[in-house]
Design a protein around this nucleic acid. Structure first.
Length: 265
DNA sequence: ATGCCTGCGGTTCGCAGA
Protein backbone atom coordinates (compact mmCIF):
# COMPACT_ATOMS: atom_id res chain seq x y z
CA UNK A 1 0.00 0.00 0.00
CA UNK A 2 1.60 3.21 -1.21
CA UNK A 3 0.86 6.40 0.72
CA UNK A 4 2.24 9.75 -0.43
CA UNK A 5 2.31 13.40 0.61
CA UNK A 6 2.85 16.50 -1.52
CA UNK A 7 2.63 20.22 -0.81
CA UNK A 8 1.33 21.20 -4.22
CA UNK A 9 1.26 24.99 -3.61
CA UNK A 10 -2.12 25.65 -5.19
CA UNK A 11 -4.39 22.94 -6.59
CA UNK A 12 -5.62 25.13 -9.45
CA UNK A 13 -2.09 26.01 -10.53
CA UNK A 14 -0.93 22.39 -10.10
CA UNK A 15 -3.90 20.37 -11.36
CA UNK A 16 -2.24 19.12 -14.54
CA UNK A 17 0.99 18.27 -12.71
CA UNK A 18 -0.87 16.53 -9.91
CA UNK A 19 -2.84 14.37 -12.34
CA UNK A 20 0.34 13.48 -14.23
CA UNK A 21 2.08 12.54 -11.00
CA UNK A 22 -0.87 10.37 -9.85
CA UNK A 23 -0.88 8.56 -13.18
CA UNK A 24 2.89 8.01 -13.19
CA UNK A 25 3.33 6.92 -9.57
CA UNK A 26 -0.12 5.52 -8.71
CA UNK A 27 -0.26 6.01 -4.92
CA UNK A 28 -3.15 4.30 -3.12
CA UNK A 29 -3.46 7.35 -0.89
CA UNK A 30 -2.24 10.85 -1.80
CA UNK A 31 -2.23 13.69 0.71
CA UNK A 32 -1.99 17.30 -0.49
CA UNK A 33 -1.17 20.45 1.43
CA UNK A 34 -1.50 24.12 0.48
CA UNK A 35 -4.36 23.52 -1.90
CA UNK A 36 -5.19 27.25 -1.54
CA UNK A 37 -8.80 26.56 -2.36
CA UNK A 38 -12.14 26.50 -0.60
CA UNK A 39 -13.58 23.01 -0.26
CA UNK A 40 -16.34 23.72 -2.81
CA UNK A 41 -13.85 24.80 -5.49
CA UNK A 42 -11.58 21.75 -5.15
CA UNK A 43 -11.45 19.98 -8.55
CA UNK A 44 -12.80 16.70 -7.17
CA UNK A 45 -14.27 15.56 -10.47
CA UNK A 46 -10.86 15.56 -12.17
CA UNK A 47 -9.42 13.38 -9.39
CA UNK A 48 -12.49 11.13 -9.40
CA UNK A 49 -11.88 10.66 -13.12
CA UNK A 50 -8.36 9.53 -12.20
CA UNK A 51 -9.83 6.92 -9.85
CA UNK A 52 -9.73 8.64 -6.47
CA UNK A 53 -12.17 9.33 -3.66
CA UNK A 54 -11.61 12.78 -2.18
CA UNK A 55 -11.81 14.32 1.29
CA UNK A 56 -11.12 18.05 1.45
CA UNK A 57 -10.63 20.62 4.19
CA UNK A 58 -10.25 23.89 2.33
CA UNK A 59 -9.88 27.58 3.08
CA UNK A 60 -9.99 30.73 0.99
CA UNK A 61 -6.69 31.89 -0.45
CA UNK A 62 -4.14 29.87 1.50
CA UNK A 63 -3.56 26.69 3.55
CA UNK A 64 -5.99 23.82 2.87
CA UNK A 65 -5.45 20.05 2.88
CA UNK A 66 -6.95 17.13 0.96
CA UNK A 67 -6.71 13.34 0.92
CA UNK A 68 -7.21 11.22 -2.19
CA UNK A 69 -7.77 7.48 -1.86
CA UNK A 70 -8.32 4.76 -4.43
CA UNK A 71 -10.24 2.84 -1.79
CA UNK A 72 -13.38 4.47 -0.39
CA UNK A 73 -12.76 6.02 3.02
CA UNK A 74 -14.06 4.10 5.99
CA UNK A 75 -14.42 7.44 7.70
CA UNK A 76 -13.33 11.07 7.55
CA UNK A 77 -12.48 11.39 11.24
CA UNK A 78 -11.77 15.10 11.67
CA UNK A 79 -11.24 18.28 9.68
CA UNK A 80 -9.05 20.70 11.60
CA UNK A 81 -6.53 19.83 14.32
CA UNK A 82 -8.34 19.28 17.64
CA UNK A 83 -7.36 21.30 20.68
CA UNK A 84 -8.28 24.90 19.80
CA UNK A 85 -11.77 25.76 18.57
CA UNK A 86 -10.59 29.30 17.85
CA UNK A 87 -8.08 28.13 15.22
CA UNK A 88 -9.70 28.56 11.80
CA UNK A 89 -6.67 27.50 9.72
CA UNK A 90 -7.33 24.49 7.48
CA UNK A 91 -4.18 22.53 8.28
CA UNK A 92 -5.25 19.02 9.27
CA UNK A 93 -7.51 16.24 8.04
CA UNK A 94 -7.62 12.65 9.29
CA UNK A 95 -9.23 9.62 7.66
CA UNK A 96 -9.49 5.85 8.01
CA UNK A 97 -8.59 3.82 4.93
CA UNK A 98 -9.49 0.13 4.75
CA UNK A 99 -6.79 -2.52 4.44
CA UNK A 100 -7.42 -5.44 2.14
CA UNK A 101 -9.84 -8.03 3.50
CA UNK A 102 -7.67 -10.98 2.45
CA UNK A 103 -5.02 -9.69 4.85
CA UNK A 104 -7.39 -9.57 7.76
CA UNK A 105 -9.04 -6.25 7.08
CA UNK A 106 -8.72 -3.44 9.55
CA UNK A 107 -7.74 0.13 8.74
CA UNK A 108 -4.82 2.46 8.29
CA UNK A 109 -5.31 5.84 9.92
CA UNK A 110 -3.90 8.71 7.87
CA UNK A 111 -3.37 12.16 9.39
CA UNK A 112 -2.49 14.78 6.78
CA UNK A 113 -0.99 17.97 8.19
CA UNK A 114 0.29 21.35 7.08
CA UNK A 115 2.27 22.60 10.06
CA UNK A 116 2.57 26.41 10.34
CA UNK A 117 5.67 28.00 8.88
CA UNK A 118 6.25 30.22 11.93
CA UNK A 119 8.37 32.96 10.37
CA UNK A 120 9.53 35.39 11.43
CA UNK A 121 10.77 34.11 14.79
CA UNK A 122 9.85 36.15 17.85
CA UNK A 123 6.37 36.93 16.53
CA UNK A 124 2.89 35.53 17.18
CA UNK A 125 3.38 33.40 14.07
CA UNK A 126 6.23 31.53 15.74
CA UNK A 127 4.21 31.16 18.94
CA UNK A 128 1.34 29.76 16.85
CA UNK A 129 3.70 27.22 15.29
CA UNK A 130 4.92 25.97 18.66
CA UNK A 131 1.37 25.86 20.07
CA UNK A 132 0.23 23.92 17.00
CA UNK A 133 3.07 21.43 17.50
CA UNK A 134 1.97 20.98 21.11
CA UNK A 135 -1.59 20.24 19.95
CA UNK A 136 -0.25 17.77 17.40
CA UNK A 137 1.67 16.06 20.17
CA UNK A 138 -1.53 15.73 22.23
CA UNK A 139 -3.45 14.32 19.27
CA UNK A 140 -0.61 11.89 18.47
CA UNK A 141 -0.49 10.64 22.04
CA UNK A 142 -4.21 9.83 21.82
CA UNK A 143 -3.83 8.05 18.49
CA UNK A 144 -0.84 5.98 19.60
CA UNK A 145 -2.93 4.56 22.42
CA UNK A 146 -5.12 2.93 19.75
CA UNK A 147 -2.17 0.72 18.75
CA UNK A 148 -3.15 0.71 15.09
CA UNK A 149 -1.26 1.48 11.89
CA UNK A 150 -1.02 5.28 11.82
CA UNK A 151 0.64 7.37 9.12
CA UNK A 152 1.13 10.98 10.20
CA UNK A 153 2.45 12.82 7.21
CA UNK A 154 2.68 16.14 5.46
CA UNK A 155 4.52 19.43 5.37
CA UNK A 156 5.96 19.69 8.88
CA UNK A 157 7.92 22.86 8.16
CA UNK A 158 10.70 21.43 10.34
CA UNK A 159 14.31 20.76 9.38
CA UNK A 160 15.02 18.03 11.95
CA UNK A 161 18.82 17.85 11.70
CA UNK A 162 21.71 19.73 10.05
CA UNK A 163 21.96 16.81 7.60
CA UNK A 164 18.48 17.74 6.37
CA UNK A 165 19.77 20.96 4.78
CA UNK A 166 22.36 21.50 2.07
CA UNK A 167 23.50 24.63 3.89
CA UNK A 168 22.34 24.49 7.53
CA UNK A 169 23.90 27.84 8.42
CA UNK A 170 21.54 29.59 6.00
CA UNK A 171 18.62 28.45 8.17
CA UNK A 172 19.94 29.29 11.66
CA UNK A 173 17.62 32.28 12.06
CA UNK A 174 14.65 30.57 10.42
CA UNK A 175 11.59 29.21 12.23
CA UNK A 176 12.05 25.86 10.46
CA UNK A 177 15.40 25.25 12.16
CA UNK A 178 15.03 26.90 15.58
CA UNK A 179 16.12 24.85 18.61
CA UNK A 180 12.53 25.02 19.98
CA UNK A 181 11.14 23.81 16.65
CA UNK A 182 13.58 20.93 16.44
CA UNK A 183 12.98 20.00 20.08
CA UNK A 184 9.21 19.92 19.54
CA UNK A 185 9.68 17.65 16.53
CA UNK A 186 11.95 15.36 18.55
CA UNK A 187 9.35 15.21 21.31
CA UNK A 188 6.77 14.14 18.74
CA UNK A 189 9.01 11.45 17.24
CA UNK A 190 10.05 10.28 20.70
CA UNK A 191 6.44 9.41 21.50
CA UNK A 192 7.25 6.34 19.42
CA UNK A 193 7.10 7.31 15.76
CA UNK A 194 9.44 6.28 12.94
CA UNK A 195 10.66 8.79 10.34
CA UNK A 196 10.12 6.54 7.31
CA UNK A 197 12.45 8.27 4.86
CA UNK A 198 15.25 8.58 7.43
CA UNK A 199 14.79 4.91 8.37
CA UNK A 200 15.21 3.84 4.73
CA UNK A 201 17.87 6.41 3.76
CA UNK A 202 20.26 7.15 6.66
CA UNK A 203 22.57 9.42 4.69
CA UNK A 204 22.44 13.18 4.01
CA UNK A 205 21.42 14.91 0.78
CA UNK A 206 17.71 14.03 0.68
CA UNK A 207 15.57 17.15 0.30
CA UNK A 208 11.87 17.83 -0.27
CA UNK A 209 11.85 21.61 -0.82
CA UNK A 210 13.84 23.99 -2.97
CA UNK A 211 12.95 27.69 -2.90
CA UNK A 212 11.80 29.29 -6.14
CA UNK A 213 14.26 32.11 -5.47
CA UNK A 214 17.98 32.57 -5.92
CA UNK A 215 18.50 29.46 -8.06
CA UNK A 216 17.98 27.13 -5.09
CA UNK A 217 16.99 24.19 -7.31
CA UNK A 218 19.91 24.64 -9.72
CA UNK A 219 22.33 24.81 -6.78
CA UNK A 220 20.58 21.94 -4.96
CA UNK A 221 20.11 24.30 -2.02
CA UNK A 222 17.35 22.13 -0.56
CA UNK A 223 15.88 21.19 2.80
CA UNK A 224 13.97 18.14 4.07
CA UNK A 225 10.79 19.41 5.71
CA UNK A 226 8.08 17.05 4.41
CA UNK A 227 7.96 13.92 6.54
CA UNK A 228 6.13 10.61 6.96
CA UNK A 229 5.97 9.45 10.57
CA UNK A 230 4.76 5.92 11.38
CA UNK A 231 3.27 4.37 14.50
CA UNK A 232 4.94 1.10 15.62
CA UNK A 233 2.16 -0.90 13.95
CA UNK A 234 2.73 0.96 10.66
CA UNK A 235 6.52 0.75 10.99
CA UNK A 236 6.18 -3.04 11.31
CA UNK A 237 4.88 -2.97 7.74
CA UNK A 238 7.47 -0.54 6.29
CA UNK A 239 8.83 -1.79 2.97
CA UNK A 240 10.35 1.29 1.37
CA UNK A 241 10.19 5.06 1.28
CA UNK A 242 11.35 7.72 -1.12
CA UNK A 243 11.03 11.10 -2.76
CA UNK A 244 9.75 11.96 -6.25
CA UNK A 245 12.44 14.54 -6.90
CA UNK A 246 11.77 14.57 -10.64
CA UNK A 247 8.64 16.70 -10.25
CA UNK A 248 10.77 19.70 -9.20
CA UNK A 249 12.25 19.82 -12.70
CA UNK A 250 8.84 20.08 -14.39
CA UNK A 251 7.39 23.18 -15.96
CA UNK A 252 5.47 25.17 -13.35
CA UNK A 253 6.67 23.01 -10.44
CA UNK A 254 5.61 23.16 -6.83
CA UNK A 255 8.51 24.22 -4.61
CA UNK A 256 7.97 20.94 -2.70
CA UNK A 257 8.25 17.40 -4.10
CA UNK A 258 6.21 14.29 -3.16
CA UNK A 259 7.35 11.93 -0.41
CA UNK A 260 6.01 8.36 -0.26
CA UNK A 261 6.06 5.16 1.74
CA UNK A 262 5.20 1.56 0.84
CA UNK A 263 3.58 -0.47 3.61
CA UNK A 264 2.75 -4.16 3.53
CA UNK A 265 -0.99 -4.59 3.69
C1' DA B 1 21.89 44.63 3.06
C1' DT B 2 17.77 43.20 0.78
C1' DG B 3 15.41 40.82 -2.62
C1' DC B 4 15.43 37.03 -5.36
C1' DC B 5 10.01 33.65 -7.17
C1' DT B 6 5.24 32.02 -7.17
C1' DG B 7 0.07 31.69 -6.22
C1' DC B 8 -3.92 33.98 -4.87
C1' DG B 9 -7.33 37.65 -4.18
C1' DG B 10 -9.22 41.00 -6.46
C1' DT B 11 -8.15 44.12 -9.25
C1' DT B 12 -2.53 45.28 -10.86
C1' DC B 13 -0.26 45.47 -5.63
C1' DG B 14 -0.20 43.20 -1.02
C1' DC B 15 0.22 39.08 1.48
C1' DA B 16 2.00 34.51 2.45
C1' DG B 17 5.16 31.21 1.80
C1' DA B 18 10.06 29.03 3.72
Amino acid sequence: MKIATWNINGVKARLEGALTWLKETSPDVACFQEIKSVTEAFPGAAFAEAGYNVAVHGQKGFNGVAILSKRPFDEVVVKGLPGDDGDAHARYIEVLVPRQARNGGGVVRVGNLYLPNGNPIGTDKFAYKLAWMKRLQVRTRELLELEEPLVLLGDYNVIPEPADAKNPDAWREDALFQPETRAAFRTLVNLGLTDAVRACHPGPGIYTFWDYQAGAWQKDHGIRIDHILLSPQAADRLQSAGIDKFTRGWEKPSDHVPVWVELRE
